[in-house]
Nucleic acid binder design. Structure first.
Lengths: 160, 160
DNA sequence: CCGATCTGGACAACCAGGTTGACCAACACT
DNA sequence: AGTGTTGGTCAACCTGGTTGTCCAGATCGG
């Protein structure tokens, strides 16, 4: 008899715990694969950039954060060599973002690891069960104005 | 045909999104019930105190955070009137924490709201399905050294 | 009874990842 | 040209943590 939650507060902790578990593992593994300074937010940001966010304001909109926050993130990415910026020749206000090979490497590895961890979960739960779980979670998330493509609300995760 | 996740990264976002959804709603509702300044961490902290953490160091251990962080949290709780501290007569190093009526009110309301939200989810999913979901999440969390009673790792959630 | 060590607390500086607010320079529109 | 919009930046602040340092009070061994 598995002792599941029963209480709403526990449910919240289960959700957060699962998330952190997953993400911590990814970050840990990323570190061993040559990305010791990568943080979850970097992954999300680079993904958004790859998906077309080629300026700070753009990134801010995609991530649903302020442009200042986006600028800080970009600065961090530049510092770590995941990304470079250069002034747009056509519009000298803009600073175009370009992902470096190192940055590509990061999201490639990140995607792989995420999928590996998910695959492990799949083994434990069964493919159908995991798919159902995802569908259920999608329902909860779908309730809300939250945009899965805009994980700005995902702020605040630390790994220890 | 529900578009569920397929990718590990999306799964992470689903978990986090569900969590934030739940918690944001609780905080929002808490605000309308007379606890406008309550944050999730306050709830967790007061719960831990009620569960027996009667000093800062104690709370730190339970929450698996540093004692400095615990002290800051306690200061915030005192400031908001959820808790009071007084020097232990028997051990003048210690400062015993006592939960005020207002604090009791907070966790009472919090528990209620958490459960209400969970109940709504139960309606949508079915009781058996939600129970299964919780059991599955518990499995993921159970993998790890994380202690559900020690949500210190839960740090970083902002509501906007 | 006393010194060594452990424990509770506090101060200070820092960090990540956000937020507001003010501001300027460059572009676009009419 | 003049006005408004957009991209970027500076600065200050917030939350919830982190280290590191230090002291005072308690406890234990001799």
């Amino acid at each position: 008899m598995v002792m599941s939650s029963r209480s709403g507060a526990d449910l919240a902790l289960l959700l957060l715990g699962s998330y952190r578990n997953l993400v911590d593992e990814v970050v840990r593994e990323l570190a061993t694969r040559g990305y010791p300074d990568a943080r979850p937010s970097h992954e999300y940001a680079i993904r958004a950039i790859r998906a077309g966010a080629d300026s700070a304001s753009d990134l801010a909109r995609r991530l649903a954060i302020t442009k200042q926050a986006a600028a800080k993130t970009i600065a961090a990415l530049v510092e770590r060599g995941y990304v470079t910026t250069e002034t747009d020749p056509a519009d000298s206000r803009r600073k175009n973002i370009r992902i470096t090979d190192h940055g590509i490497g990061l999201i490639t590895a990140g995607t792989e690891i995420f999928d590996e961890v998910r695959a492990r979960w799949e083994v434990r739960l069964g493919a159908a069960e995991l798919a159902e779980l995802e569908a259920q979670l999608a329902q909860f998330v779908g309730d809300s104005p939250i945009n899965l493509d805009a994980p700005g609300w995902a702020a605040g995760q630390e790994l220890r």
